[in-house]
Nucleic acid binder design. Structure first.
Lengths: 348, 348
DNA sequence: ATCGTTTCTGGAAACGTTTCTATTTTATGC
DNA sequence: GCATAAAATAGAAACGTTTCCAGAAACGAT
């Protein structure tokens, strides 16, 4: 029993105390404080003063238990230390806070079981809504798990069939196609592509853009240079090493997502290959500071802050009765120094 | 009384339903499920089965209201999108989750008023503990605000006098002194130093190391090159521009913290100055990817993951009755490419 | 058998709100 | 003034648990 008694004032003042002080019924206190219309001015003043004098603060749990609303939103991501997700989380929290909601943060650690445990935990806590970037889209029981939450859901960059939720999707294929086309037009044919599992929209949509660029250019699609598996840096690094030690090695690389990019850069460094010189390199999603580091990285950019804000807005909308909707966020190919190189003094 | 009217799937199953199903009293259900010792084996099995069959999940709010424990920890930071804080948050959440706690995340946006509102919100939610990186240490009412929380507190890199809390402090002065000494030994005398307000431990301890290096080397301390104000990138950028356009401009720069470093790098870029060449540059705290970017930045390093884990551990310890303690985390000067340069072909 | 002790169980009182219902007061129209 | 409606208030019943208390059953020991 952690009962730290500071001075002696640790008397938790309840609605009873206020009622007694003001000399009115408990129900009147509640009515005044929750802004019920049928309250006389005299009562309002009397209650307000008693509450102020006692420094009354309604007990959150009692309110939630009775009313059902928890003013709490669950937020599940693979890994909040990922700076891209960090920005989303920050903007989301700011918006939700403005609307009077608090955010319960949980990392799924990229693990399906952990994610499911987290959702169960959130259900017990009767959250008013959930924003999540799921590990995978086709987990058995996923739909029923989310439906049992009995709260509106906003998914980030995920398409779950048959689920009545909102979604914030990025238009990855456009940016990736632009980037790939640019590389092809510079003379690249052997372009490597590393990203996460095709079990999520993110990868599938990027792949669509990648393939489409080859098709439009009439260049053979280099199946053997496409490596799709996981989003983490370890995978990115090992695959980069594997691909760039092939006999006929790629001349360019697209890395899909923050983790892949980190791994790719580490892998290249260990191989002694310099982006923009020994190969052309485009990162999908930007690391913070991409704009100021000594070396300039090209990227397929999307606005994390906007994604966070849109997610919060969509969720709040659903909480107040609106219907689910899908929001598409654009991506943009940003050309920088690293888009050059990789071709033996042929061009430029 | 819509009790056993289980056609609709959204029937929230309560302890009553389980009691009815098992044919025992409500109190027995509670006893079995909370592992009370005085329960017969027969009862345990009967209740367990009934609960499983109905898929019973205790209501979190009812439990908290009655028992007082919320299994919830508050986590307040200036800005969760700061990758350094992101890592702390991630590790913290993982540890807390293992212990059965959930984490309520709030950004203070670097604003005292927002921070205070957040703390009030957390008090109403009766959190079991708080981990916070406060905006400032000497806010009036801060102590009483935190004491009114009536829950153990762990502060990150802050010293609040008279508050009975744990603290995770970094030994900044050691790392900063090492870095500064190295720069001095390379021939630098005019070393600029940009960091946040001296109203927090972080800055004061860094400054201590900075001054100490000059004293030990017997070199005059360059007061006019020290700029302490805010941790954000805007401040870092404008101060960098100001200092490096002085008539007698600095030959080296230390930037204090993630934000300052971002600002400093932007400022230098706009001035056309290259770290490691036109000036020597040491960042305090590392940006992710410092190890792989084209340009190699020196740093004063501290382990964010460890800070997160230690914070969680210290808090859990206090929750279970332990006393507050202060943990000192070491910092290390890591020399890379950017420690060179800035001296006109004098050395090296 | 009787009498303590344990061990186990059921009933009911909290926890601090909101909300429903019933009652009293006030205002309104004629 | 008087009926009638409307507004304001009090009282009490939830919400779903945990926990206290008292009693019942079980068990040895006399």
């Amino acid at each position: 029993m952690p009962r730290s008694k500071g001075k002696k004032s640790s008397a938790p003042v309840t609605i009873h105390d206020v009622a007694e002080r003001a000399g009115v019924a408990i129900s009147s206190i509640s009515r005044v404080l929750s802004g019920h219309p049928d309250v006389s001015e005299r009562m309002r003043i009397k209650v307000q003063r008693a509450a102020d004098e006692l420094g009354y603060e309604p007990d959150f749990f009692a309110q939630s238990l009775r009313s059902g609303a928890t003013k709490t939103i669950g937020f599940i991501m693979r890994d909040i230390s990922n700076p891209f997700f960090g920005v989303i989380a920050q903007c989301c929290e700011q918006e939700l806070r403005k609307a009077g909601y608090s955010m319960l943060l949980m990392n799924s650690d990229g693990d399906v079981a952990t994610e499911s445990t987290n959702i169960a935990q959130l259900r017990r806590r009767k959250i008013d809504g959930l924003i999540a970037s799921l590990v995978s889209e086709d987990i058995p029981e996923l739909n029923s798990t989310l439906e049992k939450l009995n709260a509106p859901v906003v998914l980030l960059d995920r398409e779950v069939v048959g689920l009545n939720s909102s979604a914030i999707l990025a238009n990855h294929h456009q940016g990736v196609e632009d980037a790939t086309s640019d590389l092809i037009s510079r003379g690249h044919k052997r372009i490597a592509f590393i990203s996460g599992s095709t079990r999520v929209y993110t990868t599938r949509d990027r792949l669509k853009g990648f393939k489409s660029a080859f098709k439009k250019a009439g260049v053979a699609y280099p199946t053997e240079l496409v490596s799709l598996g996981k989003f983490d840096a370890e995978f990115g690094e090992s695959e980069t090493k594997r691909l760039f030690t092939l006999k006929d090695r790629p001349t360019a690389l697209l890395s899909g997502g923050i983790g892949s990019t980190a791994g790719a850069m580490r892998g290249l460094k260990k191989l002694g290959l310099v982006p923009g010189k020994d190969l052309a390199f485009v990162a999908i999603d930007e690391w913070p500071m991409f704009d100021v580091y000594g070396q300039q990285f090209s990227s397929v950019y999307r606005d994390a802050a906007m994604i966070g804000r849109e997610a919060a807005a969509a969720l709040l909308e659903m909480i107040s009765g609106g219907s689910p909707r899908t929001i598409m966020v654009e991506t943009h190919y940003i050309v920088r120094e690293s888009s050059t190189g990789g071709l033996k003094a042929k061009k430029k």
